[in-house]
Write a protein that binds this DNA or RNA. Structure first.
Length: 276
DNA sequence: ATTGGGACCTGCTCGC
DNA sequence: TGCGAGCAGGTCCCAA
């Protein structure tokens, strides 16, 4: 669920709330969510201070005063909630970082797919992060680079967009939306896009990711996504195609269709989104 | 080399 | 009303 804009929103919240705090204790009831294992993680984390918070792709990076880094992935349903320790327990609360000042960060995840991973030093971190493609909304993500990536494969463009090795942070929602605004059918082979189409898609992708951040991310009908204060996002109010199967296209009124691509739901307007 | 499917888990919705 | 099948935004791993 949480894609680049949602994770970015969470990161910004964490920057305001947890930087400078000391981690006094970590409690958990789902050992698998702590990697490589709870004992190792706790031993090198408890007692340190948080020096900064970052993001790469859909990963949250929490830099600690001893040079180690906590990497958090929320997968489909994970939430990070910043709470006073006396606040009532949250749903699916499985890992809690307890800070000084009677506050804590609660990692809640109904499916326990998410994880907190201990990374020892910058070297291990850069090797982990090097697996990802360029980061959108940064200078490294140029139109030239984007076109180069698209030209290297014949997979459907929708599948290429959500592959983290190609472009970091784009998931199902934003890939569907970007393709709609670019007027491109999701099944078009990536290396068959015209220069014009690739250019439009580059612009659409950047625009939709910025818009997602502006609206604080998207909280779908399952209500899964929250920012760290527990609030829902507002980008879902601006979905053009995602989760709108059978509803009218915002541009032409044609009914939005749904197919399956890359193993997941893919939504598009059969009239506005063309193959060439 | 790609790509499709299942696994990881749990809860919700839909159709019979 | 009850029940099982199918589905869910991410990623990894394996087999074809």
């Amino acid at each position: 669920m949480p894609e680049l804009p949602e994770v970015e929103t969470i990161k910004r919240g964490l920057q305001k709330r947890i930087v400078g705090r000391k981690i006094k204790e970590i409690v958990y009831d789902a050992p698998k969510m702590l990697q490589p294992n709870p004992k190792t993680l706790l031993a090198s984390v408890v007692g340190t201070k948080i020096v900064k918070v970052g993001r790469r792709a859909k990963l949250i990076l929490i830099y600690l005063s001893n040079g180690n880094i906590l990497v958090i992935h929320l997968k489909l349903m994970g939430r990070l909630l910043f709470r006073n320790k006396r606040a009532p327990e949250d749903d699916w609360q499985h890992v809690v970082l307890k800070f000084d000042g009677d506050v804590e960060l609660r990692f809640c995840d109904m499916r326990k797919f998410g994880f907190v991973r201990l990374i020892v030093g910058e070297k291990e971190l850069s090797s982990l992060l090097s697996e990802f493609g360029p980061e959108p909304l940064t200078p490294e993500f140029t139109e030239g680079k984007f076109r180069d990536i698209l030209s290297k494969t014949s997979r459907p463009i929708k599948v290429v967009l959500i592959d983290q090795k190609n472009i970091a942070g784009v998931g199902n929602i934003y890939a569907n939306e970007a393709l709609f605004w670019a007027g491109i059918h999701p099944e078009v082979k990536s290396n068959r896009l015209s220069g014009e189409q690739a250019s439009r898609l580059y612009e659409a992708l950047n625009k939709i990711l910025k818009k997602g951040i502006k609206y604080g991310g998207a909280t779908g009908s399952d209500q899964a996504y929250r920012n760290i204060e527990g609030e829902v996002g507002r980008f879902q109010e601006h979905f053009a195609v995602y989760a709108r199967m059978g509803e009218e296209c915002v541009k032409c009124g044609t009914k939005i269709e749904r197919i399956k691509l890359g193993g997941r739901g893919t939504f598009f307007c059969p009239r506005c989104q063309v193959t060439r």
